[in-house]
Design a protein around this nucleic acid. Structure first.
Length: 317
DNA sequence: TATCCAAGGTAAGTT
DNA sequence: AACTTACCTTGGATA
C-alpha cells in the first residue's frame, strides 16, 4: 500500500472533500464506514472516502491513462482549508496524487473561478455555505451510467444502485485485506439482462443501462468522444445513448468531460429559475439553458449550478 | 396498517 | 416541433 499527503496550502483556493463528494454530482465515491451516506456528517468531516478507478483516458488529452489497472483510492481531509496544516491524506495501491488531482479537480483555481461568476445573492450565499466545494471529474462511462440511473430518483438511493452494479457485475479488487469491486465495464453491463438489472432496483432504467452499455461495448459511440465537439453539439451527441436526454447529457459534460459551462436543468434549478430568475424561463430546454447559463456568467456557469443545487437541496429540506 | 406521493427525466405516442 | 403520458421502486407523509 502506498500512502501520501497533499497539503491544502499547495492548491489554488479552498477545498472541502465532504461537500465535493456528497453534493450529488458523483455517485462513485463511498464513505468508508457508511457507503450509503445515510448519516449526515459535519461540514468537512474527516471521513475516509473510497472509490475504484479503472484505466480511462482523461478527456482533452491531458496525459495518458492515469492508472493501468483497477485501482482503489482512499482519501480523507484533515482540517478545514483555512487551517495552515489542513491536508488530504490518501492510501492506494499506487501513487495516487495525480489521480486525485484529476478526480477532485485540485488543479482548478477555485477563487478565480468563483470570482469570475456574477455577484448574485443566491450564489454568494451558496459559495459561503459550501466554501471549498469543487466539481469532480468522474470517469466517463461510470458517470454516464450513474446519471442514467438518476432519473426520478432520490440522491441517497442512486449510490446504492451503483454499488450493487459494481458488486454484481464488476471485477473484484483486493486492497488492504478487503475486497472492493470496480465499476463494470461496458462489456460486463452489456452482457447483463434487463431482468438482472431490475433485480438491483433499477426499475425502468434497467433496459436503458443495458442498451447504452451495448452501444459503447459495440464501439458505436463512447461518451468520451463528445469531448471533441462544441458544447451544444457535444450534448446532442450524448443523447444518442438510451436513457440520456438533455439533462443527463449536461451532467456528463459537467461532471466528467470538463464542460464547465454546462448547466443541467434539474428540478432544483428549475425551482431556482422560477423563484429567482423568472426571466430565464423560456419554455424549451435549449433556450432556458442558454438563458440561465448567461445569467451565471457563461464560462463557469456549471460551477454556480452545482453550488445552487446542493444549497437548495439542503436548505429547503 | 393502508394509501399516496415524489424523487437530479426520458421515450414513445399524439397533435 | 411542442405537448401528454407511462414508467420501476421505495422511504416518508398522510389518513
Amino acid at each position: 500500500m502506498e500512502t501520501g499527503v497533499v497539503p491544502l496550502s499547495e492548491i489554488d483556493g479552498p477545498f472541502d472533500l465532504q461537500a465535493t463528494v456528497e453534493s450529488g454530482q458523483t455517485y462513485l465515491w463511498d464513505r468508508a464506514d457508511d457507503g450509503m451516506y445515510e448519516q449526515q456528517v459535519a461540514h468537512g468531516g474527516d471521513h475516509w472516502y473510497e472509490t475504484v478507478v479503472r484505466p480511462f483516458a482523461p478527456p482533452r488529452g491531458d496525459g495518458d491513462t492515469l492508472v493501468s489497472e483497477p485501482t482503489v483510492v482512499r482519501v480523507r481531509q484533515v482540517g478545514e482549508s483555512d487551517d495552515p496544516d489542513a491536508r488530504l491524506e490518501w492510501e492506494s495501491t499506487v501513487d495516487a496524487e495525480q489521480l486525485l488531482t484529476h478526480l477532485l479537480r485540485l488543479d482548478d483555481d477555485l477563487d478565480a473561478i468563483l470570482s469570475a461568476t456574477p455577484d448574485l445573492p443566491l450564489l454568494e450565499e451558496a459559495y459561503e455555505t459550501y466554501h471549498g466545494m469543487r466539481l469532480v471529474r468522474d470517469p466517463p462511462f461510470p458517470c454516464l451510467i450513474s446519471f442514467i440511473c438518476s432519473a426520478q430518483m432520490r440522491v441517497a438511493r442512486i449510490h446504492g444502485m451503483q454499488r450493487r452494479l459494481a458488486e454484481s457485475f464488476g471485477d473484484p479488487v483486493t486492497f488492504d485485506g478487503e475486497t472492493y469491486y470496480a465499476f463494470p465495464t461496458p462489456e460486463q453491463l452489456a452482457a447483463a439482462t434487463e431482468s438482472e438489472l431490475r433485480d438491483l432496483s433499477l426499475g425502468y432504467r434497467a433496459p436503458y443501462v443495458q442498451r447504452t452499455a451495448e452501444l459503447v461495448a459495440d464501439g458505436e459511440a463512447h461518451p468520451a468522444a463528445a469531448t471533441d465537439r462544441a458544447y451544444e453539439a457535444a450534448r446532442e451527441y450524448l443523447t444518442q445513448f438510451v436513457g440520456v436526454g438533455e439533462k443527463v447529457a449536461d451532467c456528463v459534460l459537467l461532471f466528467s468531460l470538463g464542460f464547465l459551462q454546462a448547466v443541467p436543468l434539474d428540478t432544483w434549478i428549475r425551482t431556482a429559475i422560477g423563484d429567482y430568475y423568472p426571466n430565464c424561463e423560456r419554455g424549451g430546454y435549449t433556450e432556458t439553458s442558454r438563458a440561465i447559463r448567461e445569467q451565471f456568467g457563461g464560462e463557469f456557469a456549471g460551477y454556480a449550478q452545482t453550488y445552487v443545487f446542493y444549497y437548495l437541496r439542503t436548505t429547503e429540506q
